[in-house]
């Protein structure tokens, strides 16, 4: 349904029609602004204004509370405090998200490649299979990893028998479990854009690479990977960003030593410490914007948006 339709619409653009001047079919006048207005207002009121409010809140005097109200005192110290108290969680979030993203690439690339080039008439079936599991609630899926990785369950028993884990070894409540959960939960966000990019590649290009004396590995590196770059960049962002802000996996599959920045923000809001929570939130957003900017520049893809 949704995602399936979305994917097919991401497929090769329909043949461009020729004949100048190109009739773009775009109308001028005020009707366009009128159509933009309701949605634009919603975004302005509930996305832009809240973002500004969040930044403002991060500079409030932390001595205030919900009941007594907050004073705007340009209290930059909130940021220093937040980073001092929650620096490790912050760094951990970025590290876990990075590992999960790399794992998603390693798992997602073969899958996307197989669907694009090897699935033949089962292409749509495989796409459905990628999407379908993700309509079962995020939380329920994550909870079922509690079982899969559980101490006395088949997987751990098997790994113990094989001596991959020690006799007292375990998987649940470890960083491994958290990263596994993150990888699992965001994998489709890697597979779908990668597939959309790969699917557009004309297989003859790969044959041409071979014809022009490139080994399969060289062809993959110089042709396939190059052309899949937009999908890879989009997939990386779609995986990394939500993973860095997630706290569900850490909460359900981790332990107190695997807490991520999302856990802390949530708890700070719960405890009523709005300025610190807001400062941590703004820091997270800034770090992500910075990383995304550097990454996109490095990857040299401008056609993302």
């Amino acid at each position: 349904m949704s995602a399936a339709g979305h994917i097919s619409s991401l497929g090769p653009a329909e043949a461009q029609l020729d004949g100048p001047p190109d009739p773009e079919g775009q109308k001028r006048g005020w009707a366009g602004y009128l159509l933009l207005l309701p949605g634009g207002l919603w975004l302005l009121l509930f996305f832009v204004v809240p973002t500004v409010t969040l930044v403002a809140t991060s500079l409030y005097d932390p001595a205030g509370s919900l009941q007594l109200g907050y004073q705007m005192t340009w209290h930059w110290q909130n940021y220093v405090d937040a980073l001092q108290d929650y620096g490790p969680q912050f760094v951990r979030s970025l590290i876990y998200a990075s590992i999960a993203t790399i794992a998603c690439i390693l798992l997602g690339f073969p899958l996307a490649y197989a669907i694009a080039f090897k699935a033949g008439r089962y292409k749509n079936l495989m796409l459905v299979a990628v999407i379908a599991p993700f309509f079962t609630s995020f939380l329920i899926r994550t909870l079922s990893w509690q079982y899969i990785l559980g101490d006395n369950e088949p997987l751990v028993s098997l790994l113990r028998t094989l001596h991959i884990l020690g006799p007292d070894g375990y998987l649940l409540a470890t960083p491994f479990a958290v990263v596994t959960g993150l990888t699992y939960n965001f994998l489709p966000f890697m597979v779908l854009p990668l597939y959309a990019s790969l699917e557009k590649i004309d297989p003859r290009l790969i044959e041409a690479g071979a014809d022009l004396y490139a080994s399969p590995i060289t062809t993959f590196r110089t042709v396939t990977l190059r052309l899949a770059m937009p999908g890879l960049v989009a997939g990386t962002l779609l995986t990394f960003i939500p993973a860095a802000g997630d706290y569900i996996n850490s909460e359900l599959l981790g332990n107190p030593q695997t807490r991520m920045v999302g856990n802390e923000i949530q708890d700070l809001f719960g405890a009523g410490d709005y300025p610190t929570a807001a400062a941590l939130s703004v820091t997270l957003m800034s770090a992500i914007v910075l990383l995304v900017f550097l990454y996109v520049r490095r990857a040299g893809t401008e056609e993302l948006v």
Binding site: F46, F47, V49, P50, T51, T53, L54, A56, T57, I241, P242, A244, G245, D246, Y247, V261, G262, I265, Q266, F269, Y274, A277, A278, S281, V282, L284, M285, I288
Partner: peptide
Amino acid sequence: PEIVMGSSLLAL
């Protein structure tokens, strides 16, 4: 990230 969007809305 959802946590940021959620906190902004709550702040508002």
